[in-house]
């Protein structure tokens, strides 16, 4: 049996379609050649390929379930540039806050979830575009 090529756009499109149809929020596949992460959100498909540099924006996902919060009101204005270590917001669980780090430097271009919303593991929260 031949190995599936996860970098093939056709494969990614097919997987995305299957995930959307199944109502699954996301998928992550790790293989020797790299890592593929597909996140399905609100009918839109954000496909990010960590294996190689891509012009697609990087997506920041929820690391667990919690209530999505911004760090402060200043961070509500988009777009603005961010550094990899910047904390963009939090997931609130009770009185505990899980910081959401940018993880990539670039321009924070989109916020995909309204602050105050309960999100689940893997939900896409932010998009960061690489700075050209």
């Amino acid at each position: 049996m031949s190995e599936i090529d996860f970098s093939d756009p056709k494969t990614i499109a097919f997987l995305t379609e299957v995930l959307t149809a199944a109502g699954v929020d996301g998928l992550e596949i790790s293989s020797a050649s790299g890592k593929l992460r597909i996140v399905v959100s609100g009918g839109e498909n954000h496909v990010s390929q960590a294996a190689r540099a891509s012009s697609k924006p990087a997506v920041i996902n929820a690391p667990m379930a919690g209530i999505f919060q911004l760090r402060d009101s200043a961070s509500a204005d988009l777009p603005h540039s961010v550094a990899a270590a910047d904390v963009l917001g939090f997931l609130r669980v009770g009185h505990v806050l899980v910081p959401l780090k940018a993880g990539h430097s670039g321009v924070l271009s989109r916020r995909l979830i309204e602050p105050g919303t309960l999100v689940g593991f893997g939900d896409a929260l932010f998009e960061i575009e690489a700075q050209s």
Binding site: H95, V96, L97, V98, P99, K101
Partner: peptide, 14 residues
């Protein structure tokens, strides 16, 4: 500690 760090909502707010 998680790599992202961990914070709390401060007592003066809660």
């Amino acid at each position: 500690l998680p790599a992202s760090g961990l914070a709390v909502v401060e007592p003066s707010i809660v």
